[in-house]
């Protein structure tokens, strides 16, 4: 294993090894230069005093025992009953499979809050409020082809084809974690956080590596730029806008807040980070940045 790679690997798991007491004194000293291990230890100690609420064994057992008895009844039932039940089950299964197979396109729109989807291949997709994801349900697991309107974060742990299509971009997964934001019908941002993705559009295609982003427009692919984020900020309650038209920023904010936002036609470009869980602050920042007053009045955002 090349030394450089090995060092990186050790860096990436050193806190986990520290927790297990599996590091040397020298490593610990070095770790202390970056981390406040004492505070972290205190947090973990306090966390250790908590446990997850679960349902007690006695309560659970009552239900289980009852259903176990059902099984004994089945065992005692006649052979004919079993055969009839089996045929009925098969018919039901065929009906379910037929119905499932014929359902075709699945369309999911996140309303009001982030919608999280889990798939059988362990893929996880977080859809931003107001955004819509669609896919062919009947052969989704083989094809893994998604159409996106809006923004979503994709965590794709298993290799193989996986494609996301927006109006301007085609993103093919070669690795694991990435974020796609269709800002409007002409612009799509793609950011890669882990692994790599190939992004194609009218202007050609480009490969993104971790912490890189690119903007696709109707006729070009922008320059690949570095991002400092290791995961999308919007998942933590804020969002970074870089050179995004103000009208698109306001439209985007409207997806995160349960208030009515005005349609504005301001094409000037906005740069900055806006909170997604504090409307007053978000409007304050917008006011400062644009020189206009954005405020909330009777569940409506007004601009003066």
């Amino acid at each position: 294993m090349p030394l450089e790679y090995r060092m990186q690997e050790e860096e990436e798991n050193i806190l986990a090894r520290w927790l297990q007491g599996d590091i040397s004194l020298e490593e610990k000293k070095k770790l202390e230069e970056t981390y406040d291990l004492e505070s972290l230890e205190a947090v973990l100690k306090k966390q250790g005093e908590l446990e997850l609420t679960t349902v007690s064994t006695s309560v659970m057992w009552e239900t289980i025992e009852e259903k176990m008895t059902d099984k004994s009844t089945v065992n005692r039932s006649s052979k004919w009953k079993l055969i009839i039940g089996l045929i009925g089950g098969l018919l039901l299964l065929a009906l379910v499979l037929w119905k499932w197979g014929s359902q075709g396109e699945e369309r999911i729109k996140a309303e009001g809050e982030i919608e999280r989807l889990h798939f059988a291949d362990n893929t996880e997709i977080d859809i931003v409020p107001g955004s819509e994801l669609s896919y062919d349900k009947s052969n989704n697991l083989e094809e893994r082809l998604f159409h996106l309107k809006g923004q979503a974060f994709f965590n794709v742990p298993t290799p193989g084809p996986f494609t996301v299509i927006t109006s301007r971009a085609r993103v093919e997964v070669m690795g694991t974690q990435f974020d796609v934001w269709e800002v409007n019908s002409d612009e799509t941002y793609v950011r890669c956080f882990e692994g790599s993705v190939r992004v194609s559009g009218e202007g050609g295609s480009v490969e993104l590596n971790p912490m890189e982003q690119v903007l696709l427009t109707s006729d070009s692919i922008g320059e690949v730029r570095k991002t400092t984020e290791s995961e999308p900020l919007w998942m933590n309650g804020t969002k970074r806008y870089e050179r995004v038209k103000l009208k698109d920023v306001v439209h985007d904010l409207a997806c995160f807040y349960p208030y009515s936002f005005p349609e504005i036609e301001n094409n000037s470009v906005f740069n900055g980070v806006l909170p997604l869980k504090d409307i007053e602050k978000a409007l304050d920042y917008l006011s400062v940045a644009t020189g206009k007053t954005y405020r909330l009045e009777n569940q409506k955002v007004v601009v003066e």
Binding site: L50, E51, L52, T53, R116, L117, H118, F119, A120
Partner: peptide
């Protein structure tokens, strides 16, 4: 298939 989930953990003290 898939399942839409939200994290909503409940804690209690040990």
């Amino acid at each position: 298939g898939y399942r839409r989930t939200k994290t909503s953990l409940q804690w209690k003290s040990r």
